Amino acid sequence: MSESDAATGTDSATKADLHLYLQDAREALLWKVDGLSEYDLRRPVTRTGTNLLGLVKHVCAAEAAYFGETFGRPVEAPGLWVADAAEPNADLWARADESRADILDAYATVRAHADETITLLDLEAVGRVPWGRRGELTLRRVLVHVTAELHRHLGQADIIRELIDGSVGLRPGGDVMAPGDEDWWRAHHDRVEAAAREAAGHAEPNGPGPSAT
């Protein structure tokens, strides 16, 4: 095997690994929005308005920008406010007239388009991010960046979904959580709370424990 063939094989394996982790984040994020009411899907859970459908809308916009416009392959999607393509934070929440189906369908289209970009281009193919000071980035760097961003937003979705209805884990049927029923988790919560208060010098709990689900 020549050095070039070996390098090509290594790049193919690296691309496959990066693509796998990107896909894992996508699938887990979509699971986090499954089965919720319109209100719970959209409601802001933090002071800054973080919500589940808004996270999907945002990653849709991000994948379209990084795997589309950056490599000269534009695709229709919500605009990113950080790219001056929307008003501040517009890609992080859903208006009442933006349906769940519209946003999820748009993300399905963008994912397929991004997968085509990943398949068609070499890892060292260079694109230009059309905003900010990032300038030229290789597909390798874009894959790493977008995968890291999706996993960050998935972490936000983890907490939001647990606060809404208690659902936890990476995927249905394989939640990668310690075994235990509701009583076990309540006792675990109280144990963590007690340790925190002991370390901080507080004797009595202050505030509600986890809600039963």
Rank of each mutant, 00 (worst) to 15 (best):
A157P: 10
F71H: 08
E98L: 06
E204F: 15
R95T: 05
Q156H: 15
T109W: 00
A194Q: 14
N206T: 03
R140G: 06
V192Y: 09
P74Q: 03
V144L: 09
R141V: 02
V176A: 11
V126A: 00
D122G: 10
E3C: 01
L22C: 08
P179R: 10
R141M: 04
A178N: 05
G169I: 03
E124K: 01
D102R: 13
G68R: 08
L163K: 07
W185A: 00
F67P: 01
T14G: 02
E38Y: 03
A199L: 15
E136W: 11
A28E: 11
G49L: 12
G209T: 11
T10N: 06
D34H: 08
D84P: 01
L139D: 11
G49A: 06
E136A: 07
D24L: 13
D105G: 03
G79S: 08
H145M: 06
A125V: 02
G132E: 02
A25V: 13
D84R: 01
V110I: 08
A178W: 15
G35F: 10
N89D: 07
I159L: 13
G173T: 10
A112F: 12
V146D: 03
V192I: 13
A148Y: 00
L137W: 00
A25S: 14
S2V: 10
L53C: 11
L52F: 07
D91Y: 01
T50S: 02
P74A: 08
L36A: 01
R128V: 03
I164D: 04
R73A: 07
E98C: 04
V142C: 02
L18P: 01
A25R: 13
G54C: 05
L154M: 08
R43N: 05
G173K: 02
E76R: 12
G135F: 04
T147M: 15
W93I: 09
R95K: 13
W184S: 10
D5R: 09
A28K: 11
V142M: 02
T213N: 12
D175P: 01
E38A: 15
V192N: 09
G54K: 02
V129P: 00
Q23V: 15
G9E: 10
H58F: 07
W93P: 03
L55N: 07
D190K: 11
W131K: 03
T14R: 14
L123M: 07
E63H: 12
R47M: 10
L170M: 10
L143N: 06
S4M: 04
A90M: 04
A148R: 13
K32Q: 09
A199P: 12
L36M: 03
A114I: 08
T50L: 07
S37R: 10
Q156A: 05
T8W: 12
L30C: 08
V33Q: 11
A199V: 15
P88H: 04
G169Q: 02
A16C: 11
S12C: 05
T138S: 10
A194M: 13
A101C: 04
R140V: 06
A64Q: 05
C60A: 13
G54A: 03
T147G: 14
L18K: 06
E38D: 15
A16D: 15
P44F: 05
R43L: 12
R134V: 05
D91A: 05
W81E: 05
L30T: 14
V144G: 00
L143K: 04
